[in-house]
Design a protein around this nucleic acid. Structure first.
Length: 439
RNA sequence: GGGGGCGUGGUGUAGUGGUUCAACAUGCGGCCCUGUCAAGGCCGAGAUCGCGGGUUCAAAUCCCGUCGCUCCCGCCA
């Protein structure tokens, strides 16, 4: 018999249906048994009159909650049932996979075990409604991001994650044996998306894994995460990148609201808002001045940079003064940026770059890239890089590469910001950290 | 790489030197209950208090070490 989803049961009053799902709660009484069943669409009560089938009653009594069941019965309206005013009168039950007793923890209990323990049993943790919602929302968000770009003629690329030389960035590399040599896991698709600019693709994006061997033990770092990268050609400055990005994020948020507003309100207790475009912008120099005014003390060694506390302070300030969750911090000093960021022509030492803060959290970095071969080489040397090692990359800029720029964006960090999740381990399907390689 | 915090039955917590210090909740097992509904009632099993060492007449409780987890800084998405 065809499966009926629990949310559709009210269209089948009086009919015999089959539902498939998990035993959410069992109330086993003297004469009656009540099974609360859950599938991905909701909960329903199933009633069984014990004397109607004593063998079945005994089977049910032995069931552990969270067992995977398929059951058949007649849907009846019953106003005394508090769960939706209907119930299924049980006729047949098939145990697809019994849950052992006891469970490692109760996914639907009053309190939850600490996060580390839940990660050990992530599949049980993921049965919780909020977790299903997080990944439904992420699916919609990623779909919208891709849609936005496809509407504008972007090409999607998939660059290799195994590399012979480090890709860039100060981040530590994972190395691995590779036949008779050593290979590295990509820290970023940076060089490859710029290669696409040299290739004349003009506009590209990529969703892909990124690996960072930094031993970071914080609520917002992972050793492997999904990077969302884009790169566009023929830009005038980093402003073009920011302008594209903010509309892209507004479109994405709009899509999430259209599809999940009700569920988000029901589960998280608040509504999302589409961020107003354009987002606030502040230069690094202005940011330092502002921080000074609002009394945030930045350590001396951070005179070219921000620290996480400063980012939170800026986020809070723009929320308070402009009601905005996002802010671009632009024009970072070259000291704080990689060699390939383009310098301002009339402000030496400053780059055409930006970070995007969402609720005070760094979720993206972008810039116009330096596409002039000689200038790029000089900047690499200034950063102390060996030209030999990056010559393959430098070659992209010898045979007609347009001006271009783009950004790298952390998908899970965005999910944290979007849904107010306190820890990136809640925002990612399966967490990878310095001491977490399983599941 | 640096710093802080935590580590008690399956799970979440209480207890901060002795005399119920091993408790409470939940889960688990049993019994009871005219259809319950986040069910309820009664009974029961379950932790030598992460591990090792030390202080003390006495340690879950203090000290040292170690391991694990966690958060912050550094680094970044």
């Amino acid at each position: 018999m065809k499966r009926t989803l629990i949310k559709d049961l009210n269209q089948h009053i009086g009919e015999q249906v089959t539902i498939q799902g998990w035993l959410h709660t069992l109330r086993d009484q003297k004469n009656m048994q009540f099974l609360i069943m859950r599938d991905r669409t909701g909960l329903v009560q199933v009633a069984h009159y014990k004397k109607g089938d004593l063998d079945l009653a005994e089977t049910i009594s032995g069931l552990g909650t969270e067992s995977a069941l398929r059951l058949t019965g007649k849907v009846i309206e019953n106003e005394i049932v508090k769960l939706g005013g209907l119930e299924i009168q049980l006729e047949d039950l098939l145990i697809e996979n019994a849950a052992e007793i006891p469970l490692p923890f109760e996914p639907f209990g009053e309190y939850l075990p600490e996060q580390d323990f839940r990660l050990d049993w992530r599949f049980l943790d993921l049965r919780r409604q909020i977790n299903q919602l997080i990944f439904e929302v992420q699916t919609t968000a990623v779909q919208a991001m891709r849609e936005f770009w496809l509407q504008k003629g972007f090409i999607e690329i998939h660059s290799p994650k195994i590399m012979g030389t480090p890709s860039e960035s100060g981040a530590e590399l994972f190395s691995l044996p590779y036949f008779d040599t050593t290979a590295y896991l990509a820290q970023s698709p940076q060089f490859y998306k710029q290669m696409a600019m040299a290739a004349g693709f003009e506009r590209v994006f990529e969703f892909g894994p990124v690996f960072r061997a930094d031993p970071s033990f914080t609520s917002r770092h992972m050793t492997e995460f999904t990077g969302v990268d884009m790169e566009i050609s023929w830009i005038d400055s980093h402003e073009d990148v920011m302008a594209t990005m903010e509309r892209w994020l507004a479109y994405t948020t709009q899509s999430v609201i259209e599809k999940h507003d009700e569920a988000i309100a029901a589960t998280l207790g608040h509504h999302l808002e589409v961020p107003a475009v354009p987002f606030p912008r502040i230069t690094m120099a202005e940011a330092h001045q502002l921080l000074n005014e609002i009394g945030y003390k930045l350590p001396f060694e951070k005179k070219f940079d921000l620290d996480p506390g400063a980012e939170r302070a800026l986020g809070a300030h723009f929320k308070e003064t402009q009601g905005h969750d996002y802010v671009y911090v632009t024009d970072w000093p070259f000291e704080a940026r990689p060699f390939y960021h383009m310098l301002h022509p009339n402000a030496p030492g400053l780059t055409r770059s930006f970070d995007l803060l969402g609720k005070g959290l760094e979720i993206a970095t972008g810039a116009q890239r330096e596409h002039r071969y000689e200038v790029l080489k000089a900047q690499a040397l200034e950063k102390g890089l060996s030209l030999e090692v990056i010559q393959g990359y430098l070659n992209y800029f010898r045979y007609g590469t347009p001006p271009h720029g783009g950004f790298g964006f952390g998908l899970s960090r965005f999910m944290m910001v979007l849904l107010d999740l306190p820890n990136i381990r809640e925002a990612v399907y399966i967490f990878r950290g310095p001491t977490r390689l399983t599941p």
